[in-house]
C-alpha cells in the first residue's frame, strides 16, 4: 500500500498546486448542464423523446459520463508531462509495482470525479428541480469511479505508446468525436439509424452513461443496465492490462 498511497499523495500535491483547475473540474459538468442542458430542455419541451423526462434529466447522466471521460483523458495526458519533465522514467525505478503506478496515477482524480458527481447531482436537484433517485447514489458513485479509471486505462494505452504529445492530442480529439456522439450521451439510441445505433451499442460510453442514467433518474431496464455495467467492467479490466503491458514495454 505504501506505493499506492505515495502515488495518491504525489498526484494530490501536484493537483493542489493549481486549485483553480480542481474547482473547475468540480463545477464544469454542472455549468454544462445549466447552459446546454437548460437550453436544450427549453427547446425540446418537458417530455424529451417520449421518455417521460425533460432533457436536463436525460442529459444529467450524459454530462457525468462526459466529465469522467474528460478527467480520464487529462490524467493520461499528464503522462506526457511526466515524460517531458524526466520524472516518468525515474518514477519507474521507485519501489512501486507498475500496476500500482497506473492505479495510483488515477486515484486522486477519481476522488475529484466522485466529488464532482455528488456536487453536480445535488445542485441539479436544487437548481433544475431534477427528480434524482437518491437510492441510486451508491451505483452512481461506482459508475463514476469505474468510468474514470476505465477511461484512464484506455487513454493510458495510447499515451504510453504514442511518443508525441501533439499526436496524442489528435487521437483524443478523434476519440471525443467518436465516443461522445456515437453514444447515448446526448440522445437516446433507439431512434437512431441502424448503423449509428449499432455503433452506439458497441460504445463503452453508452454502457457507462446508461448505468449512470439508471442510477440518477431510474431510466432503463435493470437487466440491460446490469449487462452494460458488466461489459464496462470487462472493458476497464482489458484496458488496465493493455496499459500495464504498454507501461512494462517502455524503453
Amino acid at each position: 500500500m505504501t506505493g499506492l498511497t505515495a502515488m495518491l499523495y504525489r498526484e494530490a500535491r501536484l493537483r493542489a498546486t493549481n486549485a483553480t483547475f480542481i474547482f473547475w473540474d468540480v463545477i464544469y459538468p454542472l455549468a454544462y448542464l445549466l447552459v446546454f442542458g437548460v437550453g436544450m430542455s427549453s427547446a425540446l419541451g418537458g417530455n424529451f423523446a417520449g421518455l417521460g423526462a425533460g432533457y436536463s434529466e436525460f442529459f444529467l447522466a450524459g454530462v457525468l459520463g462526459m466529465a469522467s471521460f474528460g478527467i480520464a483523458s487529462n490524467t493520461a495526458w499528464s503522462l506526457f508531462m511526466d515524460r517531458d519533465n524526466g520524472i516518468f522514467y525515474e518514477m519507474l525505478t521507485y519501489p512501486i509495482s507498475r500496476g500500482a503506478y497506473l492505479i495510483g496515477k488515477v486515484l486522486f482524480n477519481t476522488l475529484v470525479a466522485l466529488v464532482q458527481a455528488v456536487v453536480t447531482v445535488a445542485l441539479s436537484a436544487v437548481l433544475l428541480d431534477i427528480d434524482v433517485r437518491w437510492s441510486g447514489l451508491p451505483l452512481l458513485l461506482l459508475a463514476v469511479a469505474a468510468g474514470t479509471a476505465g477511461w484512464f486505462f484506455f487513454y493510458a494505452i495510447f499515451a504510453l505508446k504514442i511518443r508525441r504529445n501533439d499526436a496524442f492530442n489528435t487521437v483524443t480529439s478523434i476519440f471525443y468525436f467518436v465516443f461522445l456522439f456515437a453514444s447515448s450521451m446526448f440522445y437516446p439510441v433507439d431512434p437512431l439509424p441502424a448503423v449509428f445505433r449499432a455503433a452506439a451499442w458497441a460504445n463503452p460510453i453508452t454502457w457507462q452513461v446508461d448505468v449512470l442514467r439508471y442510477a440518477t433518474i431510474g431510466l432503463g431496464s435493470p437487466a440491460t443496465v446490469s449487462l452494460e455495467g458488466a461489459l464496462f467492467c470487462i472493458f476497464s479490466t482489458v484496458c488496465f492490462f493493455a496499459a500495464l503491458r504498454a507501461l512494462m514495454r517502455q524503453k
Binding site: 500535491r13 501536484l14 498546486t17 519533465n85 522514467y89 525515474e90 525505478t93
Partner: peptide, 14 residues
C-alpha cells in the same frame, strides 16, 4: 535501489 537517471528529472510544479 535508488537511481539518479541521466536526464534531468524533477517534479517541476512542486
Amino acid at each position: 535501489i535508488v537511481v539518479v537517471v541521466q536526464e534531468s528529472a524533477a517534479e517541476i510544479f512542486l
